[in-house]
């Protein structure tokens, strides 16, 4: 039985609109699963013993669990808001801990160096103080008032703007980012990172978006986001150690890493350690 406390969570395993006609083998928390289409055209997910696993179809994806989830999948109210375009970005397989993929998504200080001239650029490298909290009522990590100068914040952006961000971690391998919508400055674009933990050191990343953008083609929006994730992958596959350290004794976190530290504390408090390294090495 892999996964410990993470076993009872929901995980994305497929895009709901692109179910595999002939079925597809995959992994979840190191255990084999099979994703197939049933007689009615719906999804069916089974484990290695052929047991039918619970599923939810939401936010463009099929979600499943090897355990017994006590709670429904976390809410994203914006998913139902009129005027947004919902974008199934696809999947990117990454040779890194699923927790490292989430941590990187929560990071803004890398924008000028990894997403150069798109999400950031020198000399605009300073990370201003922002706010981070663990909201006890919903048991989520939140970072707010995050501001960063961006040369091209989104496919819909014309030139550089200071973008405001909020980050939310509602489950150990999922994060939701809210950022200033370039065409509608009063609204937030929603970009999510849903991560399927294949093993402790490999994951499938399923980004999904709910954007205000009436002009860009679907293909352009998908390509923009895929380009960003491919840039992130070159980082994620080259961090030492491969697992996410829950002891920072071999690292030097600074105030710019405040969201990372809050995320790791939250993982530690809940015993969400699949993909984590407990002792610094």
């Amino acid at each position: 039985m892999n996964g410990g406390a993470m076993r009872d969570q929901w995980y994305p395993v497929a895009i709901a609109a692109q179910l595999p006609q002939k079925g597809r083998d995959s992994l979840l928390l190191g255990e084999p699963i099979h994703i197939a289409t049933d007689e009615t055209g719906g999804a069916r997910v089974t484990d290695g013993a052929g047991r039918i696993l619970p599923i939810i179809s939401r936010y463009g994806h099929i979600w499943t669990s090897l355990g017994q989830p006590e709670q429904d999948l976390f809410p994203i109210p914006e998913a139902d808001q009129p005027g947004r375009r919902l974008v199934d970005v696809g999947s990117v397989k990454v040779r890194c801990s699923p927790l490292r993929a989430v941590e990187n998504f929560l990071d803004i200080a890398h924008f000028p160096f990894v997403h150069t001239d798109i999400l950031g650029s020198e000399p605009h490298t300073e990370v201003e103080r922002y706010e981070v909290e663990i909201r006890d009522d919903v048991d989520e990590v939140w970072a707010t008032k995050v501001k960063f100068y961006q040369p091209q914040a989104a496919k819909s952006a014309q030139g550089g703007i200071t973008t405001e961000y909020m980050y939310r971690v509602p489950s150990p391998t999922c994060s939701i980012l809210y950022k200033t919508s370039p065409p509608r400055p009063g609204e937030w674009d929603v970009i999510t990172l849903f991560v399927q933990p294949l093993t402790e050191e490999t994951c499938e990343v399923w980004p999904w978006m709910a954007l205000f953008d009436d002009d860009s083609s679907m293909t352009d929006m998908i390509h923009f986001q895929q380009m960003i994730f491919v840039q992130d992958r070159s980082i994620l596959e080259n961090q030492i150690p491969a697992l996410l350290p829950l002891d920072p004794g071999k690292e030097i976190p600074t105030r710019a890493d405040m969201t990372s530290i809050a995320y790791r504390r939250w993982l530690k408090r809940h015993g969400y350690t699949y993909g984590a390294q407990l002792v610094a090495a």
Binding site: P112, F113, T125, I235, I240, E251, P253
Partner: peptide, 23 residues
């Protein structure tokens, strides 16, 4: 030493080597 990124992926400017992750 910041967050474990391989410095061999970094970039050289003048007499300095910078980490590609956070510079």
């Amino acid at each position: 030493p910041h967050r474990g990124m391989r410095l061999s992926h970094g970039f050289v400017r003048g007499e300095f080597l910078s980490c590609i992750y956070h510079g």
